[in-house]
């Protein structure tokens, strides 16, 4: 019984939250990695694209709510997603036209593009704040729990409760669907194949008649869709606050680099690596150990590798180690 309790505690506090967080990171990192693969620069504005997409989705949610539309027990935000994606796609296509295309034509250094994307990040940040403000917004109106801790305890007779929030389930299901759709698109459709060709060898792709502007436009739309979905899922799971999305940029970059920039599979793996290490390293394992070790041996202090404030330090430590010893990432991505 103690062993089961330990497993449940582990599931409850480490595996489920880390999986949901990892799925959000993976979706974000997929966007970064796609942009990197096709346009060959790291988009600093991705975090704020996520924030903008989420803000648009929230506006859509409010609109739907005022019309009385809802898809209870699921949150209304899921219904508003297409609207958010469309608005975000329009925004990023606009910035591409106004900013990035100029540098693409000039074949500027990637680092110039990175700096330009920092400028774009500031603009998007300002736009998001204009649209929705800086406050914290809860917009999850679905059912809160799939499995409630108390009910779980009553049903199984275990001492340890298992709480499964519906947003976590939605996150995982949506992430799986989105990733499946993305890989189907990249692997099976003509446009997807042309994108992969463009990413592998730009000159050869141009020679074989692939239209670069079209590939770039599709990439931006995909990135906008991924960013909006990732941002909305993150917002449903936690809550929406413009500044949090800027901070999310760092673990997302870490995930994309750890997995190997430009490699979609790597981005997903990287997202989960970062999320699991962040949660596992900062989790207090005393409770789990308490079930496994006989009573009086249980240590009195917390069994944490690092305290919770180190969360950021974890992703950066992983990042630095990977950069120094395997700059192409776990899966072979591109090195600069």
């Amino acid at each position: 019984m103690d062993f089961l309790n330990a497993i449940v505690a582990m599931l409850n506090f480490v595996i489920i939250p880390a999986s949901a967080y990892g799925a959000q990171l993976a979706l974000g990192a997929l966007g970064v990695t796609l942009i990197y693969g096709i346009l060959r620069f790291s988009n600093f504005a991705h975090g704020d694209t996520m924030a903008f997409g989420t803000a648009m989705t929230i506006l859509g949610t409010w609109g739907l709510q005022s019309l009385g539309v809802s898809i209870s027990p699921l949150p209304t935000a899921l219904l508003a997603l297409p609207f958010g994606i469309a608005a975000t796609a329009a925004l990023v296509l606009g910035t591409d036209r106004a900013v990035y295309r100029f540098y693409r034509k000039k074949k500027s250094d990637p680092i110039i593009l990175v700096m330009a994307s920092v400028g774009v990040m500031f603009i998007m940040n300002g736009v998001t704040r204009f649209v929705i403000g800086v406050g914290e917004i809860q917009f999850d109106d679905g059912v809160r729990f799939v499995i409630n801790a108390r009910e779980f305890r009553a049903a199984t007779g275990l001492a340890e409760g298992l709480a499964l929030r519906s947003t976590q389930v939605i996150t995982l299901v949506t992430a799986v669907l989105v990733v499946w759709a993305l890989f189907w698109f990249l692997g099976r459709t003509r446009t997807g194949k042309s994108m992969r060709a463009f990413s592998d060898n730009e000159d050869l792709a141009l020679l074989s008649g692939i239209n670069p502007e079209r590939v770039v436009a599709v990439t931006w739309i995909l990135a906008a869709a991924l960013a909006t979905i990732a941002g909305t899922l993150f917002g449903l799971d936690k809550s929406f606050k413009a500044f949090n999305y800027f901070q999310l940029l760092l673990p997302i970059f870490a995930a994309a680099i750890v997995g190997g920039l430009g490699n979609p599979l790597g981005a997903i793996a990287g997202g989960f690596v970062i999320a699991f290490s962040e949660v596992a390293v900062t989790y207090d394992f005393r409770k789990v150990l308490g079930y496994l070790i006989p009573g009086d041996w249980t240590p009195s202090g917390p069994i944490q590798l690092l305290s919770t404030e180190y969360k950021f330090a974890v992703s950066f430590a992983i990042l630095i180690i990977v950069l120094l010893f395997r700059p192409t990432g776990i899966f072979k991505g591109k090195s600069v």
Partner: peptide
């Protein structure tokens, strides 16, 4: 690290320095 990595990767590494130092002075 700049001896091994350049460009964007170096920018991320120095970003790590930023967060690490601020955290250190806080903690």
């Amino acid at each position: 690290p700049s001896l091994r990595i350049k460009g964007f990767y170096l920018a991320v590494a120095t970003l790590a320095a930023q967060f690490f130092l601020v955290w250190l002075f806080n903690k």
